[in-house]
C-alpha cells in the first residue's frame, strides 16, 4: 500500500480554485521533490495535507496509509504520522520550547494509545537530537522560535521531525531565508532522518536545495497540477531551462 495517495485533488480558497485535479503517490522510503513557480499551488498542497483551515476541498481524495486523511483533524493527522515543516514557523512567546516539545510529543503518543515519556527519557532524547543539530540547550528554554534566526527556526522544525518520528515529512520551502551554511546544516539533519519506513515530500522553488537533499522523484507543478514527473535529473533540466515551458504547457 502506498503511504500517501493524492487523487485528482481540487481545492478552493474562498472563490478561487487553486488545485485543479492534482495526483501524487508516495511510497515509504521515497523522497519526492515538488518544484514549481510561485503561485503554482505547492504550499496549498502542503497545507491541505496537514489540515490547515481555510481550504475547501471540492473534489478528489487524499489517502494516508489507506485512510481518508481529509476526514481527520490536524492533530489526528499528526499523531498518525504526518509532519509539515513550516515555511515560516510561528513564534509563540510565553511557551518554552521544551514545554512545547514535551506537550506535543505526549499528545501524539496519547492519541496513539502509547504511554507518555518520562521526564528523564524525554530530556535525554531531546538533548541528543538537539546536539546533533547544533541546537544549544539555551534555545530550548526560550519561547518557541522567539528570537530565533531563520536557520534556527528551520533547525527547530527538523528537531521536531526527529523527535516525533513521523512516517511522512513535508518540507515546505525549507531553503527560504537560509544562507548556504545554514542550508547545509538543515539538509544534513533531514538526510539523517531518511529511512526505508519514512517518506519525504520536499517542496521548493529552487534546484539548489536538491543538491543537498537528493530526491528519488521530481514533480513539476504549474497552475495547480503536476505537469511533469521524472527522476532527479528533471531538477537540473529545470535549472537550465526554467519554468516557462511548463507554464505554457499547463
Amino acid at each position: 500500500m502506498s503511504l500517501l495517495e493524492v487523487k485528482n485533488l481540487q481545492v478552493r480558497v474562498e472563490e478561487r480554485e487553486i488545485l485543479h485535479g492534482l495526483s501524487l503517490t508516495v511510497n515509504p522510503g521515497e523522497v519526492h521533490a515538488i518544484m514549481g513557480p510561485n503561485g503554482s499551488g505547492k504550499s496549498t498542497l502542503s497545507h491541505v495535507i496537514a489540515g490547515k483551515p481555510g481550504y475547501e476541498v471540492t473534489g478528489g481524495e487524499i489517502l494516508f496509509k489507506g485512510e481518508n486523511l481529509l476526514e481527520m483533524s490536524p492533530d489526528q493527522r499528526s499523531s498518525k504520522g504526518v509532519f509539515l515543516a513550516f515555511q515560516y514557523p510561528v513564534e509563540i512567546p510565553g511557551v518554552a520550547t521544551m514545554t512545547f516539545l514535551r506537550t506535543a510529543l505526549n499528545a501524539q503518543r496519547k492519541a496513539r494509545g502509547e504511554s507518555e515519556f518520562s521526564t528523564p527519557d524525554f530530556l535525554k532524547k531531546v538533548r541528543s537530537v538537539a546536539a546533533s543539530l547544533n541546537i544549544p540547550q539555551e534555545m530550548l528554554r526560550r519561547g518557541v522560535n522567539v528570537g530565533f534566526s531563520g536557520g534556527e527556526k528551520k533547525r527547530n522544525e527538523i528537531l521536531q521531525m526527529a523527535l516525533f518520528e513521523p512516517s511522512l515529512c513535508i518540507l515546505d520551502e525549507m531553503d527560504s531565508g537560509l544562507d548556504i551554511d545554514a542550508l547545509r546544516v538543515a539538509a544534513d539533519g533531514v538526510n539523517a532522518l531518511r529511512s526505508p519506513d519514512r517518506a519525504m515530500v520536499v517542496i521548493t522553488h529552487y534546484q539548489r536545495l536538491l543538491n543537498y537533499i537528493v530526491p528519488d522523484f521530481v514533480h513539476v507543478m504549474s497552475k495547480g497540477k503536476v505537469v511533469k514527473s521524472g527522476g532527479k535529473e528533471l531538477a537540473l533540466e529545470l535549472e537550465a531551462s526554467g519554468y516557462a515551458q511548463f507554464e505554457a504547457a499547463a
Partner: peptide
C-alpha cells in the same frame, strides 16, 4: 494551527496559548 499540526487537540492548543498569555 501550528500547535494542532504538532498533535495538540483544539482544547490543548487553546490551553497552551492561554497559559502563555
Amino acid at each position: 494551527f501550528y500547535l494542532r499540526a504538532r498533535g495538540l487537540s483544539e482544547k490543548e492548543a487553546q490551553a497552551l496559548l492561554i497559559q502563555a498569555f
